[in-house]
């Protein structure tokens, strides 16, 4: 397979969230805002790329019987690194992701790529695959995050959880309305609740199916 294809196939065609339904726990839990989704995605990109590289480096030395435990330890090492790094440099993100940072260890996507790809392919290919799949995961998370935050508050904020400078808005419906009307008072707050996560993902998956069947007909 060509390198470019290896990189981009995770973005949409083999998207981990929408096509393979991998890593559903973070996809539902951390997507109440766009920023937390993006933050989670970046952490997963880092862990997935690094663990794929290391696993493909050591693939010849690990006996078949203890393959999975060894992979998990390698992944857990990088997750520990990421957790400490986040706590030091993006404390708001660390607080808001909470238990889901350690839980990157048991994200099926990472173990799945280690088992299905990195343990069989070269280092460079594994790194590209890990990065591509991580970006695909981030795209999936961000789509859910954008939809949920927009429906819940009418705005998309930045700078609250990630250290991106002054807090502000990437997008705000108030810009189009003007006057005394404040869209934040009219948000559908259920979409920020756990219930909204399930419903949003359900509708997005159905939308994906509709798009696919449309493309099939055309």
């Amino acid at each position: 397979m060509k390198r470019k294809q290896l990189l981009t196939r995770g973005f949409f065609k083999e998207n981990p969230i929408f096509v393979f339904l991998l890593g559903m726990c973070p996809a539902l839990a951390v997507t109440s805002t766009f920023e937390t989704s993006l933050g989670m995605g970046v952490l997963v990109i880092f862990v997935l790329t690094c663990s794929n590289i290391v696993i493909s480096l050591v693939k010849g030395f690990i006996p078949e019987q203890i393959k999975i435990p060894s992979f998990i330890v390698i992944i857990a090492t990088f997750v520990t690194l990421v957790a400490m790094f986040t706590e030091a440099y993006a404390f708001e993100l660390y607080e808001s992701l909470g238990v889901f940072i350690p839980l990157i260890v048991v994200n099926c996507l990472i173990l799945g790529r280690a088992e299905a790809f990195a343990s069989k392919n070269s280092v460079a290919d594994s790194a590209i695959d890990g990065f591509g799949m991580g970006v695909g995961f981030t795209i999936g998370l961000s789509i859910i995050g954008i939809v949920r935050e927009l429906l819940a508050t009418g705005q998309i904020a930045y700078g609250v959880y990630l250290p991106l400078g002054e807090p502000g808005f990437l997008f705000n419906l108030n810009w189009f309305i003007g006057g005394d009307f404040n869209i934040a008072d009219y948000g559908i707050s259920v979409f920020a609740l756990p219930a909204g996560a399930f419903i949003t993902l359900g509708f997005l998956l159905a939308m994906k199916n509709i798009l696919e069947s449309k493309r099939g007909e055309a």
Binding site: L193, A195, G196, G202, A206, N209, S213
Partner: peptide, 23 residues
């Protein structure tokens, strides 16, 4: 069930309603 919702999508919507009840 509408065919686009068959399987996982409708299950997620159902789970959302259950979650609302538990809320």
């Amino acid at each position: 069930v509408p065919k686009e919702y068959k399987g996982v999508p409708i299950s997620l919507v159902v789970a959302g309603i259950m979650s609302l009840a538990f809320f």
